[in-house]
Design a protein around this nucleic acid. Structure first.
Length: 785
DNA sequence: CACACCCTAACAT
DNA sequence: TTAGGGTGTG
């Protein structure tokens, strides 16, 4: 799975982060990673056909862990098999059958522990098992979606369109899909993940065992990954990650690399390799995914004009919307497209019923997670995780405004909160975590209840939960066509003229697509690749340098707003109307957006976390896309004034950042930065004197160039004229009127509750944002002095 | 040096 | 099933 050797090669930009750092965010989760681990706990039961839901408990435990850290998980399941990968499935199926047979043989001899070894190897996570997990997710109002094909592509789609802030997985492919914030190795004991941020790719400069990515575009990175061998295409024998990287650095494009290899004749390039390469590339770029907003299948990235029927089959067939929606909800088996069969109907995860909120619970709900709202799980959850030590007083519900500053950010929005408090809370959480090791996790607590529900029939034989594999070998032509049965043969059609000037022209064009990082990383830059001066990156980068980048080009509020618009309606939010009611701002109420979306100097979205500059923008046909899709580069901006002291790229300065941020924030509050910078407290004249801080002219979005409202407009922040998703027709995406929310939210049946919609966020904002903005403010002031 | 191959540990209980 | 270490080979 994934790209062999990629993660070790990115060691230098791996950062271990505590889960608390993701508080307030929505993180997508590759569900099968958890399910595969979960089945380990009950491999024997599954292999011998006994009903069990331990694997669900395992996964739900992690769900609750994330929620405990104020992270909203968005669970993404794999769907049907992609033609590109079908061959490997048959192979696995055979091995599983063998393991099952050996396991049974050993069990018959009474060698149960040895039998278990083989049972573990024979278990496949079936869609029906995934459905058991889905039942639990529904019960606890956790957003989820079943991908039509691969979860990887679906995860990438969710992140790219701002539905989630990051992705928890173990699969390095996600980076190739263009994800920006990928979190590996979730450690439920230490409560940490290993973060790899795409924005730091430019810092991977080839030291040690690392490869060098400095100055590279998404296209080049993806080409390197495919060349080195990926799930869709084996590599040219003798070519691994480092070779691919070196060759690509020298020859710029995969096409030329292949040509050179053919010319040299040292390596056996499989026949039609380049053709296969392009198909593999299309899997990464255009695989079919489910759009939760449109409720239909879409391409991960829109396809080009030369799209063929073969491509179509390769990236996953289209499904009509109603079927796609059922599949996304988990009501249809993605492999057979038959109605999902509940293999374990006696397993009825407890629905978390909402009780009358006590004052404490109300506060907790304000915090954004609603953990205290649930019951009867309340006891289990709270005793497991414990309430958070600091809970800000809640404002009257009568003062609810329709807009939240930022989802789930309310609890820490109190201006009184300090970093010390946050750290206190963190320490308390750690203590709690240690404590929790001595208590039954909620999953196990729930077991007796479930048992009661299940009754005696739990023991009945049920063979459906083991190794259910659709072994249909039909329609395998595409794959066999792509298999490398002729490795030794060299594609004789390929010819190459190194003197062909058009080839070099291509190289130069490709150079225009560089990764964002070098422009602000201070790293050695690839001189062959021009630096885009206004392209500051990474969250941390933006925190450090956001004023080095030009705020004019993308007022953060707009970008944020843009994101908000994109996502309307946003399933994640709607699914949580019970315990975390946060209606998505609609166009109509955007102008009244209060503090949460102030046009302050938070450039995270616009630079570091620029989701719109996706890999689709930087392909051969859409070379301008890299610019036009990126708010950060919308407006030409002067060269940044990045100082050499920038810490960008140094993973060790996090603590310093936090300390700095704390100080900054204090100062910022003291000096009333918010009044001055964020809330538009400046006078017209003041604003006029700060030309670099206001956008006045035009803006370019994927939809074209648009006039931006004058900053004096009372519509603050100024919404983008078009959304990134191009959902511009009202009919395509109805406004998220509350009445519609439920209907348009496929991920949930079980939510509901008369959850009062808490939208009170008048003077509240995300602490993370505060920190960022505080840093920015100081930096900004420094510059203007 | 980079790759391929083999082996082992960890996964969770 | 994957990650990582050790070893052999071109």
């Amino acid at each position: 799975m994934g790209i062999t050797g990629l993660l070790p090669a990115l060691k230098s930009i791996q950062v271990t982060k505590h889960l608390s750092e993701f508080s307030g965010q929505t993180l997508a989760v590759d569900a099968y990673v958890w399910l595969h681990r979960g089945v380990y706990a009950c491999a024997t039961e599954l292999a011998t056909g006994k009903d069990t839901h331990k694997y669900v408990d395992y996964a739900m435990h992690r769900v609750r862990l994330l929620r405990h850290h104020n992270i909203e998980p968005y669970i993404v399941f794999d769907g049907g098999p992609l033609p590109a990968k079908k061959g490997t499935e048959d192979d696995r199926k055979q091995r599983r059958d063998e393991s099952l047979a050996r396991g049974n043989a050993l069990a018959a001899q009474g060698k149960h522990s040895q039998a278990r070894e083989y049972y573990v190897k024979c278990i496949d996570v079936t869609p029906q098992m995934a459905f058991q997990f889905i039942k639990a997710l529904r019960a606890e109002s956790v957003p989820y979606v079943v991908a039509p094909y691969e979860a990887d592509a679906q995860l990438a789609y969710l992140e790219r369109n701002g539905l989630v802030d990051g992705i928890i997985t173990e699969d390095s492919d996600l980076l190739v899909f263009g994800c920006r914030n990928v979190l590996f190795k979730l450690d439920t004991v230490a409560n940490t993940v290993v973060s790899i941020s795409r924005d730091r790719f430019g810092s991977v400069s080839g030291n040690g065992s690392d490869i060098s990515l400095a100055g590279w575009s998404d296209v080049q990175f993806r080409e390197m990954a495919i060349l080195s061998g990926c799930d869709y295409l084996p590599s040219i024998p003798g070519v691994g990650l480092k070779t691919a990287c070196t060759l690509l650095r020298k020859w710029k494009t995969a096409e030329q690399v292949v040509r050179v290899l053919l010319l040299e004749g040292k390596k056996a390039v499989p026949r039609k390799y380049l053709e296969q390469f392009r198909l593999a590339e299309k899997c990464f770029r255009h695989q079919r995914v489910y759009c939760p907003m449109k409720e239909t299948l879409v391409y991960l990235n829109e396809v080009d004009a030369d799209w063929t029927a073969q491509d179509e089959a390769y990236v996953g067939c289209h499904l009509e919307p109603s079927l796609a929606k059922k599949l996304a909800m988990g009501d249809v088996d993605p492999a057979t497209l038959e109605p999902m069969k509940d293999i374990y109907p006696e397993f009825v995860p407890r629905v978390r019923v909402r009780v009358k909120p006590t004052s404490m619970e109300t506060n907790c709900r304000d915090k954004g997670k609603g953990k205290a709202v649930v019951t009867p799980a309340k006891e289990g959850i709270l005793s497991f995780f414990g309430p958070n030590p600091k809970i800000p007083p809640r404002q009257g519900r009568g003062s609810l405004s329709p807009i939240r500053a930022r989802k789930t950010a309310t609890w820490k929005a109190s201006g009184k909160r300090t970093l010390a408090e946050v750290m206190d809370r963190d320490i308390a959480a750690k203590k709690q975590k240690q404590r929790s090791k001595f208590f039954d996790p909620p999953a196990s607590r729930s077991a007796p209840i479930a048992k009661t529900v299940a009754g005696p029939s739990r023991e009945r034989e049920n063979k459906e939960n083991i190794c259910i594999v659709n072994d249909d070998d039909d329609n395998d032509e595409v794959h066999s066509h792509l298999s490398v049965e002729a490795q030794g043969e060299v594609d004789s059609e390929m010819e190459m003229d190194l003197e062909d000037p058009t080839m070099y022209e291509t190289v130069e064009q490709e150079d225009g697509y560089i990764s964002q990082t070098p422009s602000c990383s201070g790293e050695i830059q690839d001189l062959s690749s021009p630096v885009r001066p206004d392209k500051a990156t990474s969250r941390r980068c933006s925190a450090d340098l956001e004023f080095g980048a030009d705020p004019v080009s993308s007022p953060p509020s707009q970008v944020k707003q843009n994101r908000t618009l994109d996502m309307t309606p946003r399933p994640v939010l709607r699914t949580r109307s019970l315990d975390l009611p946060q209606p998505r701002p609609s166009r109509s109420n955007l102008p009244t957006a209060p503090s949460g979306s102030f046009p302050g100097p938070d450039l995270r979205r616009s630079f570091g976390d620029d989701r719109s500059s996706d890999i689709d923008c930087s392909d051969d046909e859409g070379r301008q896309g890299f610019i036009c899709n990126s708010p950060a580069t919308l407006t030409p901006s002067p060269p940044t004034h990045l100082t050499q002291e920038d810490h960008y790229g140094d993973p060790d300065d996090v603590e310093q950042d936090i300390a700095n941020a704390h100080e900054m924030r204090k100062q910022a509050v003291i000096t009333g930065w918010r009044q001055r910078w964020a809330l538009g407290g400046r006078t017209k004249a003041q604003r006029a004197s700060l030309p670099n801080l206001t956008r006045r002219e035009t803006n370019v979005t994927p939809g074209g160039r648009h006039t931006i409202p004058h900053p004096d407009s009372r519509l603050r922040p100024m919404p983008y004229p078009r959304t990134v998703l191009k959902i511009s027709t009202p009919s395509a995406v109805p406004k998220p009127r509350r009445a519609d929310m439920r209907k348009s939210l496929p991920f949930f049946e079980a939510v509901k509750g008369a959850g009062a919609v808490d939208t009170s966020i008048v003077d509240v904002f995300d602490e993370e944002e505060v920190v960022r903005i505080a840093i920015s403010s100081k930096e900004m002031l420094k510059r203007f002095r």
